[in-house]
Design a protein around this nucleic acid. Structure first.
Lengths: 147, 147
DNA sequence: TTCGCAGATGCAAATAGTTGCAGATAGCCC
DNA sequence: GGGCTATCTGCAACTATTTGCATCTGCGAA
């Protein structure tokens, strides 16, 4: 299933430029991720891809997500919900604060993690890859309550 | 298998004081963790406990680790090695910087994460539970090298 | 346009961790 | 010391994810 040149997206061109193979499965997985504003699980991507490509295998989804992660095109976050979440990296870098009491998720921008990153580079010479962090704890409403 | 009173450790007394059940399995798991200075996986704890309690089940190990985590007696860290690591919480709080290139692990004390924690409390009103963090990236030696 | 091959995929098995259920038991109360 | 019960445990099944292997295929080179 080779898309016509007039359908080629910029991501296809970029991947082609990086000498990466573009299989039908990969193109579909990438488009599901690009179209998805929220985080998405591997299982949900699998369901979406199967709509157009019924014989795709779940292990291919996982392998492709790993490949995209390695290329820096996707970020992966464990929100503590039992499955890891994925997010198209260009849809904005941010992080999360997950309340362990009520489950509320507060988004956090990059400024504080960037400060930490710079401090770690200074102190330890270590260059942290701040892809997509999730910190667990208690939100404002749940702090006064005990367990 | 009830330990004699002269064998009761302070942790047994504390757990008893918290109205927590002390089963033979739990006592053994706790002692393996207390004796272990480094991080340890669930599987390794299982092997150690089986030496003295052959019929213990791996699901009991996982359940007990979850219970100890909830009590704040153990911390859990994913060092990216395929299994989560556990550490007796009183053996010192620290965090890790894991190099994705060479695998080297740099220990980090609490001061920088504490700064982040305070900043998050100020900015978002969110009280982060800094139990045992692991940040991934590149160490000093591996930064100049490409993938 | 065809060919060859490095790498992708599907399949099934494996791994780390979780869960439902029935039976066992720690420990409190009498 | 014995009884009772809430909770723990072992077992087997399950889930999310990874991996080995054989076959397929994207795509660059001729």
């Amino acid at each position: 299933m080779k898309t016509g040149s007039h359908h080629d997206s910029s991501i296809e061109q970029r991947l082609h430029g990086l000498r990466q193979r573009l299989t039908p499965q990969r193109l579909l997985i990438v488009s599901v991720l690009e179209e998805n504003d929220a985080h998405i699980t591997a299982e949900a991507i699998y369901e979406r891809v199967r709509e157009q490509y019924p014989y795709v295998n779940l292990s291919t989804i996982y392998r492709t997500l790993e490949w995209l992660k390695k290329l820096g095109l996707v970020t992966e976050t464990d929100m503590g919900e039992g499955s890891v979440c994925y997010h198209w990296a260009e849809k904005g870098r941010h992080h999360h604060l997950v309340c362990q009491k009520c489950g509320r998720v507060v988004d956090m921008d990059e400024s504080l993690p960037c400060s930490l990153k710079e401090a770690l580079l200074q102190r330890y010479g270590f260059d942290v890859d701040l892809s997509h962090l999730a910190f667990f704890g208690r939100c404002e409403s749940c702090q006064s309550q005990s367990d």
